[in-house]
Amino acid sequence: MNQLILSLICGIFIGGTCGYLGNLMLSKRMALVAGPLGHLALPGIALALIYGFDVSLGAFPFVILGIILIWLFEMRTRLPMEALVAIVFASGVAISFLFLPTEEAETALIGDITKVSLKETLITAALCILIFILIKKIYSKMLLINISEDLAKAEKVDVKKYNLLYLFAIAILVALGVKMVGGLLTAALVAIPASTSRNLSRNLFQYNFLSIFFGALSAILGISLFKLTSLPSGPLIILTSTIFFLISLIFKK
């Protein structure tokens, strides 16, 4: 099948689902957590590139490790989230560059969705659909937890269970995201479309719809621009997303 179509399918699924998840993360001011997770995935990505297996597969265990680390740090210390983020961020990048071959560095850092195989595309699409359904199922309760954990507990919501499912969704999507935009840019994949949507929305329906829409559209346009210019696709996707965000500032409600 045409390589461009495969890339576009991957992009639409990853971009759209990340946008949807990002809008939940934004409600808890947690959007930046995807950043250190993406960076921490770098050693895994490096291993995958060296030994020639799927980048997302390499990233996933490291993302899980990252989630456990951030969770432990938050319990153990009273340091602000930014400090924890910076520590995890730097360590991930540092470790990966101990053994990452220079010629693979670009793919690891900014991703490459333009060479995906049919099999990868099918797996990516299936995972995205599953995660999308999962997010849709937990969305109401998760949003309530993000607004106020106390209120959620008073409503007998099992906060631990929902948080675990939520983190699981984040882990899978970050692992998929690094394939598209690399360890450095994954945070933007969840943060920017949701922020754009936040600027333009007056209700939850619009907020959800536009988050998904801008996530998918940025991927489509970014990959198309790659085809035209041969510049790296990851940065093009993110910059397209940034342009939508800037435009949204003009129309901000």
């Binding site: 934004l26 409600s27 808890k28 001011r29 949003l143 993000n146 607004i147 106020s148 106390d150 209120l151 008073a154 409503e155 936040r198 929305s201 007056r202 209700n203 939850l204 619009q206 907020y207 409600k253």
Partner: peptide, 14 residues
């Protein structure tokens, strides 16, 4: 339960 305030609710268009 009626809490004192819900500061984070302003983060969400709803």
């Amino acid at each position: 339960y009626v809490p004192q305030r819900l500061p984070f609710i302003k983060n969400v268009p709803m």
